[in-house]
Design a protein around this nucleic acid. Sequence first.
DNA 1: CCAAAAGTGTTAGCCGTACACCCATGA
DNA 2: TCATGGGTGTACGGCTAACACTTTTGG
Lengths: 246, 246
Amino acid sequence: MNQLIPYLSVDCVVFGFDSDTQQLNVLVYEREIFDRKTGNVNLKFPGSIVPMEDDLDDSAQKVLYELTGLKNVCLKQFHAFGNPDRIKFDEEKKWAERHYGVKIDRVVTIAYYALIRIDKQNPEQSRIRDKLKWITPDRAENMAFDHSLILKYALAALRKDVLLKDVNGLELLPPKFTLAQLQSLYEAVMGSKLDKRNFRKKISKASYIKPLNEKQQGVAHKPALLFCFDRDEFEKSKEDINTFFI
Amino acid sequence: MNQLIPYLSVDCVVFGFDSDTQQLNVLVYEREIFDRKTGNVNLKFPGSIVPMEDDLDDSAQKVLYELTGLKNVCLKQFHAFGNPDRIKFDEEKKWAERHYGVKIDRVVTIAYYALIRIDKQNPEQSRIRDKLKWITPDRAENMAFDHSLILKYALAALRKDVLLKDVNGLELLPPKFTLAQLQSLYEAVMGSKLDKRNFRKKISKASYIKPLNEKQQGVAHKPALLFCFDRDEFEKSKEDINTFFI
DNA sequence: CCAAAAGTGTTAGCCGTACACCCATGA
DNA sequence: TCATGGGTGTACGGCTAACACTTTTGG
């Protein structure tokens, strides 16, 4: 028997920021199914079918928890993908059927992005599972289903949300960070270079980014002052946006 | 038999702008079902269940076409609403079942907003059906299902998209418009007052808003110069956004 | 003492903001 | 001639953008 209405799933584009390479990364799940070597057909974003009784946001949080052991992660729904042909091949359908144990012809997915810290010291991070790995967005062509498209949308949504402070990119940084890390994060998200002095002048006016009395340690150059992020001040500062771009 | 997976629907929040009252309006469908007089429980946004073989965006376009006779309307998906309890009452379920002819326990809806011109001269507008009416957002408390919440999200999404030029508010104005109309549109969308002279200075720098050699007629005051909107210039001008709000 | 990244100031032009009066038209 | 909304300019302060050298540390 074929299904009569589309299945519903959530998929999570998990962003991390690697301060060493100064690049955004995304967490992908590696399926070991096809031996076609074209592109990244074995890579997909982690997701799951939404059970009849579960809320969408809860489903997404659950996926994240199972992957990373993290709770209360910054998670944002950004688009629903519902092209009837988004599961392109029969073998994809079979994979999905094996994976979920139901017969599947069509799945509409609600996509979320999440911001987490890539933090090798953090014990919770060790829960990031086998079969999951970080890749950079430019290596994400030709993923399974329409997941390369989902990533494009996720990046655009992240950029938009950061521009309007709908989300805070600082979720991607460790609790104590340097201005250089912060700048390279903004550069990675916006996809453009910024002037160091002008950037610092601007940031010094942001009440929600606060200097600590603490410096970097063990670096072979002048140690940088560490800063932290004040969530409450950030929330307050959102109200000041009123000008529009012509 | 109860359903095993959620139904999927699209709902459309259709925005229009009334230049006379200088207010945003939304198009609502009036159900004549309940005689509870609490709030607007009989008002909902037009929508439909998504058939197994239809694309989400196409479904939304179809809903709009059936309502207004308009094609190629500016239409933007902004959020999926999937709380398992969003259809709150048994009588709501029964209404939905009568309306769609299937047994319904849960519906996840993908919400779109659309921008159309309220234009009494336009013959296509005459196709706006009985049972549909324009109301202002502040009169939309307590609508059916979670539609009051959907409206809040729609307004926020519209504001955000207009701020970032992801969408053009000018879709709400007639092809030839005055700067006063344009200003009151921006004020309505942003929810704030703007200074006339400063607004005009800003607009005069926007390459995509072009003066015509034509004036208002039949008004009991100095007739205003008419302007029009250049879609191509608008698309080009999007690239200039690179600064972020601190 | 060398390499590496941190940290810092000035200038010029542009943009946002605040503010008040005359003009063209139809009634 | 009056009521109505259209249309205009200026000055100030703050922001953006462009640009290069000194400082501190570990190796």
